[in-house]
Design a protein around this nucleic acid. Structure first.
Lengths: 107, 107
DNA sequence: TTTATATGAAACCTTTTGGTGTTATGTCAA
DNA sequence: TTGACATAACACCAAAAGGTTTCATATAAA
């Protein structure tokens, strides 16, 4: 099927619970890495790796201000994941209509 | 944050491109493992492992018919992932309104 | 200028992941 | 009953993931 899948770095980034928690945290405000790392039970370098993976998927962007690097959520990339999932809605509708049809025929 | 995340097995399953391709394939019809494995450039045991992970995330169900085991898509689990992503829509709206506000103030 | 702060980067380790090949089991068909 | 088929189950392996500690660098503040 799709060898080169543009959604791959996004779904890869979303696969880890820490990274999803970071995204949720950034939804309530831009934050530097130190702030983020303080909320988790792991070292800062570990959080830095997670941020790097989120950045690879373009789920966040980073802006350097002085010696701080502010991490910001980029909702556009999340939309790519939503779009992929939305394709299954047609399937969902089909199932429902087939079920309805089956019920009709039983009557 | 959430240590026990119910969405975890789902996002974990979605992280692999082969598994996403399998889901897309099952959207067009229920299939036994042999059919699925034939479409990919890997051995059947490898595909079987992918199916096991999809089943752990409850993204598919399996029905044994004779010596075949038919794999079926379960769209309900996909909805869990959609719901998680949809929470960011509020953020998206906020960003837009803030942008609009900033533009207004510039006038 | 010196010191503290915020971060990046490298080297390393363990577990998980995604694949392989081989063998075993249950079912259909001749 | 015998043979072919569809699949499960195992043991194994290399690479990636997720973490650690240690060290280096740039900026702010005293």
């Amino acid at each position: 099927m799709n060898i080169q899948d543009p959604a791959q770095p996004i779904f890869r980034a979303l696969a880890d619970p820490t990274r999803r928690a970071i995204l949720a945290m950034l939804a309530s405000g831009d934050r530097p890495i130190g702030d983020i790392a303080a909320k988790f039970d792991m070292t800062r370098p570990a959080v830095a790796k997670h941020l790097a993976i989120l950045k690879e998927g373009d789920l966040i962007s980073v802006e350097a201000i002085g010696r701080e690097r502010i991490n910001k959520l980029n909702p556009a990339a999340l939309k790519t994941a939503q779009d992929w999932l939305n394709h299954f809605d047609h399937f969902w509708d089909d199932r429902l209509s087939k079920l309805k049809q089956a019920v009709e025929e039983k009557k």
